[in-house]
């Protein structure tokens, strides 16, 4: 049983590229939604002429409201930035083409070859448009101590979560944080839902 399972895993290995790509996409979309949602207009540098598809109301934008303390506001995300990232990932990395294929019909070599295109292009999208930094600078698998009042958004506890801070534990993953978003600006009226135009060669 075990050897078979291992074989299956190695066979599936190229597929992980796909999964990787997909999770990467999801992460980016989430990141974008958050950064636009939190009124971070400077970083996203959308020109005034562009109207966000959904108004990005945020908690900070209405500090005067008397109900702020008691009401939890759920922020709508901006679809524009998400569509833009999808478009870039298709243009540079062919990600939509890749994910729309039924990979099981292709050999590992073919999936692997396509994964290189996706990896190279997606990496370019990542470095051109985002500045990403690790949250923790310590080596993974080393022990770290979290003092009281640590940022629970930045650090997630797991495992034997008991007792009181300071917590000492093993750093499993360093975490990633986007410190800058520099997406292309969009000309007013440009249809962002077209992430890849059809191409007709004359």
């Amino acid at each position: 049983m075990n050897p078979q399972l291992e074989q299956l895993l190695t066979q599936l290995d190229p597929l992980h590229y796909g999964l990787l790509g997909f999770s990467f996409l999801l992460i980016i979309i989430l990141v974008i939604s958050r950064s636009t949602g939190s009124n971070n207009a400077d970083a996203v540098t959308t020109p005034d002429s562009v109207k966000p598809a959904a108004p990005a109301d945020s908690v900070e934008s209405e500090p005067q409201s008397a109900q702020v303390a008691s009401t939890v506001k759920i922020t709508e995300y901006s679809t524009d930035a998400a569509l833009q990232v999808l478009g870039l990932l298709q243009q540079e990395a062919r990600l939509i083409d890749f994910l729309q294929e039924e990979v099981q019909h292709f050999s590992d070599a073919e999936v692997g070859a396509a994964a290189r295109v996706v990896h190279e292009g997606a990496k370019k999208v990542l470095t051109d448009n985002f500045l990403i930094e690790p949250i923790r600078s310590e080596d993974e698998e080393s022990h770290v101590t979290l003092d009281e009042g640590f940022n629970t958004a930045e650090v997630r506890l797991s495992g034997n979560v008991v007792g009181k801070p300071p917590f000492t534990g093993l750093l499993i993953h360093r975490g990633w944080k986007v410190s800058e978003v520099k997406l292309p600006k969009v000309i007013d009226g440009h249809d962002l839902t077209i992430i890849a135009p059809a191409e007709v060669e004359l």
């Binding site: 890749f98 729309q100 294929e101 073919e110 290189r116 295109v117 191409e199």
Partner: peptide, 30 residues
């Protein structure tokens, strides 16, 4: 891109270059 990689990273011996097909079915035929 391959040249830049090979000339800067001396441990690298080969770099594959993939040209996928132009259509939306990017796999196979590349």
């Amino acid at each position: 891109a391959a040249k830049e990689a090979l000339l800067t990273d001396t441990d690298l011996q080969t770099v594959p270059i993939v040209v996928p097909s132009r259509g939306s079915r990017m796999m196979g035929g590349g």
